[in-house]
Amino acid sequence: MTSQTQTSKVAIVTGASGGIGAAIAERLARDGFTVVVNYAGNAAPAEALVARIEAAGGRAVTAQADISNADAVRRMFDSAETAFGGVDVLINNAGIMNLATIAESDDALFDRQIAVNLKGTFNTLREAAKRLRDGGRIVNFSSSVVGMLQPGYGVYAATKAAVEAMTSILAKELRGRNITVNAVAPGPTATKLFLDGKPQEVIDRLAKLAPLERLGQPEDSAATVAFLVGPDGAWINGQTLRANGGII
């Protein structure tokens, strides 16, 4: 049974309409959080997710916002505060990945990943730093490519390395408010973002990289987030957890 204290908490999950974000939203709803399901453009998957959560006895609402737009992020926080009285948890899951060597990366590839992965995370962190209720939790999403440093991931890995830096710095800046700030860095995970465009032999090879010899599942990342925002994660702060099955 979920405690009354936890059931009153409100969590914004960015990029929550599919993949890891949807798994996080469903897990937090099961754990008793009211979940704000953020999506950028396509409302249908987000609305379907909210329907599933509510059918299972949880509480959730959709919130359209392109996180690269600071005004849209501000409005999303405004709406959550109006509807629920405040926000306790921010999960920065939204992100995009476009791969190319550094030599072949054009300006559009660079600018879009910076806009969503880095500026978007900054936009939500800035609002959360001002507005999260004391005792809250922030979980950013990095990637294990920051440690693996594979060719073709230069721009993407750079955005995620910057997210890790901001994670540790914001944890220190929020001293005195009992708010933890951490990051989760998944390895290869069986999501549309990861699987699209990859031949099966490549997927099979990547699945064997971790000593546990499988791809991560969205639920693996969701369980890590649930730990960090739950009572057992209260002493973890300013850290990046590489939830990747031991790949690095």
Rank of each mutant, 00 (worst) to 15 (best):
G238N: 05
I20Y: 02
K172G: 10
D66V: 08
G85E: 05
A43C: 13
V35S: 02
D196Y: 00
S168C: 12
P45Q: 07
D196H: 00
S221M: 15
G230R: 03
V50K: 00
R112M: 12
A226Q: 01
P218S: 06
G197A: 12
A222L: 01
F141N: 14
L99T: 14
L193A: 13
L99H: 07
A94P: 07
S144D: 14
D106V: 12
R175P: 09
T240R: 04
L241M: 11
A171H: 09
E104W: 05
A80Q: 06
G152A: 08
R175C: 06
G216A: 09
G216F: 03
R242V: 14
Q239I: 00
G32F: 12
K172D: 08
N93F: 03
A63S: 05
G230M: 04
R74W: 12
L170S: 12
D106M: 12
I247A: 11
T82V: 04
A56K: 07
I12E: 13
G233H: 00
G120Y: 04
L90C: 15
A23F: 09
G230T: 03
P231N: 10
A80P: 06
E164C: 13
E201H: 15
F141A: 08
L241E: 00
A43S: 13
V163R: 06
T82F: 01
A25W: 03
S17L: 11
I12V: 14
I248Q: 14
I67P: 01
Q150T: 09
A29F: 04
I169P: 03
L209M: 11
V229P: 00
F33G: 08
R126G: 04
N93P: 03
S142N: 07
I247R: 10
P188L: 06
A16W: 07
V146W: 06
K9V: 08
A185I: 07
V146P: 11
G176N: 05
V35N: 06
A162Q: 08
V163Q: 09
R52T: 10
D66K: 07
A11K: 11
N92H: 03
S143Q: 14
I236K: 00
R214E: 14
A44G: 15
V184S: 08
M97H: 08
R205Q: 13
T224E: 02
D88R: 09
G187A: 09
A56P: 02
D88P: 10
L206G: 12
F84P: 10
G135K: 07
G136S: 12
A171D: 11
V116R: 04
A70E: 05
I67S: 02
G57Q: 10
I91P: 00
G233S: 06
S221A: 15
R112I: 13
A94Y: 05
F33K: 05
D111H: 08
K130R: 15
G41T: 15
E173P: 09
Q6H: 05
G154V: 01
M1K: 10
R137W: 01
P186A: 10
N182C: 13
T191V: 13
A55T: 13
